[in-house]
């Protein structure tokens, strides 16, 4: 019985944990570049801060998935799932965990370069923002599949 709950919580934990780790690494990479730019040009702070924050969304998406699962499996509400339902919850969390982790890191690297771009050409901020946003698309797609899966788990299993 509890194995189902365990699997669901494990999935929630991995979604929040991995996506969060990906974001942490990404924001960290971008933050180093941002700090470098600000030493030279303190007035660029707000612009590079926005670019640094872009890889931070994966962590939030992961938190979101984790929270939705916890609120459905009896931790924060809902009922304790059966084993098979727990397995489905676990599987539903995986897109977010994997997609969030890898895209977070990659977006961080991209943000880092975008920060370099803005440092040299502050007027190109709009374009600089688009490059990291391209990477984020795939985190959003992962989030979408995770959300649709979790919301779509039939009650009868």
């Amino acid at each position: 019985m509890e194995l189902g709950l365990f699997l669901a919580v494990l999935g929630a934990g991995l979604a929040a944990g991995f996506a969060g780790a990906g974001s942490a690494i990404g924001v960290g990479i971008a933050g180093r570049s941002a700090a470098g730019v600000v030493t030279q040009e303190p007035s660029m702070f707000s612009k590079v801060l926005i670019l640094q924050l872009l890889p931070g969304t994966q962590g939030i998406y992961g938190l979101l998935i984790g929270f939705i699962v916890l609120s459905q499996v009896g931790i924060l509400g809902g009922e304790i799932p059966s084993l098979s339902k727990g397995l489905i919850y676990f599987a539903a969390c995986m897109p977010m965990a994997i997609g969030g982790f890898l895209s977070g890191i990659s977006q961080g690297q991209c943000s880092s370069s975008a920060i370099g771009l803005v440092a040299k050409r502050p007027d190109q901020f709009g374009k600089a923002m688009i490059f990291p946003a391209m990477v984020e698309t795939y985190a959003i797609l992962a989030l979408l599949i995770s959300i649709l899966s979790i919301f779509g788990i039939p009650a009868s299993i």
Partner: peptide, 20 residues
């Protein structure tokens, strides 16, 4: 354009998390 859904749900869900 599915990001319209994902980001829209994200806003609502995160707000719910904090409310809870």
């Amino acid at each position: 354009y599915s990001r319209l859904l994902a980001l829209g749900l994200a806003t609502g869900c995160i707000a719910q998390v904090f409310n809870k």
